[in-house]
Every structure is written in structure tokens, then in C-alpha cells.
Write a protein that binds this DNA or RNA. Structure first.
Length: 148
DNA sequence: GCCAACGTTGGC
DNA sequence: GCCAACGTTGGC
């Protein structure tokens, strides 16, 4: 069992939106590193749902991986913002998984608090980090969740 | 293969 | 809205 963190701008897709929809195909990831992490995901892995680009960035909920990776259909949709003309049906460049709602945290565990923990090397708090999908170790997971 | 220009992310 | 950091693109 592995642990992950996935970012979303609450204006675009919030934890409340996920709660309402129960599960969401996570389309639109267009970064190779993030894609490669998704490829390592297995059904049942746990995900910190993180709100970014908002008044209080931080972990707001827990989700789980609801499917194996499969091709992201938006890459083939010319009308989509995520359309990639260079990606071929026979060899899809971009993948997605389904993100399944588990629960909302009692409160937001802010980025500020997370930075104050001693988490070692952590992609979320690495300087200049922009990854939207990143791995979390069990120890990092437990330390962050202990703040709830 | 280098690297400047450009676009995007995301905290503040 | 600003801007640092970083990934990608494309000319050479």
C-alpha cells in the first residue's frame, strides 16, 4: 500500500465537489513526472487531497485510488483544454486514475503547519516544487494526519 | 545537444 | 497581481 498527495485548485474541483461526485476521473495531468507517479498507483492506495492556489493551501481530505491507470480521453478531444495533438490513440501519452472520495478532514492541515514538521525529503515542501501528483511516505502520512 | 524564450504553477 | 521556479519548445 502506497500513499500519495494530489493537488487541486478548489475553484476548479474541491474536496466538497469530490464528496458529492464520490469518484472523479483525474483528467488533465500533463506532466511526465506526475504521470509516472500515477502509473505506480494501485487500487486502494490512499491519497491526501490538497487544495492549492487558494487562501489556505493544505490537505483537506482523504481519497483513494479507484482504478488502475488508463488513457486520459481529454488528450484526444480537440475541444478540450487538455487536447494533445501529438498523442496517438495506439500510444496514448497521458493517463489518469479515478480518485475516490473517502473522507473530509475535520479541518485543513495547512501547508504552513506541514512545513514545520520534520518530514525529510518531501516533494510538497521542496523549494520551487510544482508537481501536482507526488508520493508520500508512511511516516510523512502519519505525521501529517496526526495534526488533524 | 545547447540554451534562450516562453508558459505555467502556486505561494504570498 | 506579482514573481520565483521550473518544464517545455524550438532555433541553431
Amino acid at each position: 500500500m502506497k500513499y500519495w498527495l494530489m493537488k487541486s485548485e478548489p475553484d476548479e474541483f474541491s474536496i466538497d465537489a469530490l464528496k458529492q461526485k464520490k469518484s472523479e476521473p483525474w483528467s488533465g495531468v500533463r506532466n511526465y513526472q506526475a504521470r509516472n507517479f500515477m502509473r505506480e498507483m494501485r487500487v486502494g492506495d490512499l491519497i491526501f487531497f490538497y487544495h492549492s492556489s487558494c487562501p489556505e493551501p493544505g490537505v483537506v481530505g482523504i481519497a483513494e485510488v479507484g482504478s488502475e491507470t488508463h488513457p486520459d480521453p481529454t488528450q484526444f478531444d480537440a475541444k478540450s483544454d487538455y487536447y494533445d495533438a501529438a498523442s496517438k490513440q495506439e500510444e496514448p501519452r497521458w493517463l489518469l486514475i479515478d480518485v475516490k472520495y473517502k473522507r473530509k478532514l475535520k479541518r485543513t492541515i495547512s501547508l504552513d503547519e506541514i512545513k514545520q514538521l520534520d518530514l525529510g525529503d518531501f516533494a510538497l515542501t521542496r523549494r520551487g516544487n510544482r508537481l501536482s501528483v507526488l508520493p508520500v511516505t508512511k511516516s510523512q502520512w502519519d505525521q501529517i494526519l496526526a495534526l488533524e
